[in-house]
């Protein structure tokens, strides 16, 4: 076991691909990569964010975090279940966002390390405080993208 995640950062393109595939297959949504400056500008217009965290353990240990605006999550919820676009409570929304993060993380690890077994933790999802945004947490190799024209960010961190 190792806590070094540095090698994993080189697979950020695969991580972006995992986001695209999960969005297309589970949400019927489009993903577009964004340059850092434009992404930061888009994030400035968002108010409330949800952030999901999935831990992974294997040859490398770490966490993958995924942040998206709360109302985007609401839209995704309807697409995920193929139902009407009705307001849902926090519990089902958090469950769905956690499952999306889980699918992105699992898909990314499977493609990056097909010959290794990784165990994922149950996703932890939180509504972030007012004024919070993901930009300050994103390194050079984080995934900055839009999901149906709204910002979504994915980044990796060492296991705490």
């Amino acid at each position: 076991m190792s806590s070094q995640i540095l090698p994993l950062l080189d697979s950020s393109d695969v991580l972006a691909g995992a986001l695209t595939d999960v969005a297309e297959r589970s949400l019927f949504a489009f993903v577009d990569p964004q340059p850092a400056d434009l992404f930061a500008e888009r994030c400035g217009g968002e108010s409330t964010w949800l952030c999901a965290e999935v831990g992974f353990r294997g040859e490398h240990d770490g966490v993958m975090r995924c942040a998206l605006p709360a109302d985007v999550a609401q839209e995704c919820f309807a697409a995920f279940l193929g139902g009407p676009d009705e307001a849902a409570g926090d519990a089902p929304i958090f469950d769905m966002v956690g499952e999306l993060a889980n699918m992105i993380c699992g898909t990314w690890l499977t493609r990056t390390y097909p010959d290794q077994v990784y165990n994922l933790s149950h996703p932890d999802v939180a509504r972030m405080p007012a004024g919070w945004g993901p930009v300050a947490y994103l390194g050079d190799r984080a995934v900055r993208a839009t999901l149906n024209d709204r910002p979504v960010a994915i980044w990796l961190a060492a296991a705490s």
């Binding site: 699992g106 898909t107 097909p114």
Partner: peptide
């Protein structure tokens, strides 16, 4: 039905 489709998991 899993996100983990690795060859290692399938072998397991």
């Amino acid at each position: 039905i899993s996100t983990d489709g690795s060859a290692a998991r399938r072998e397991e």
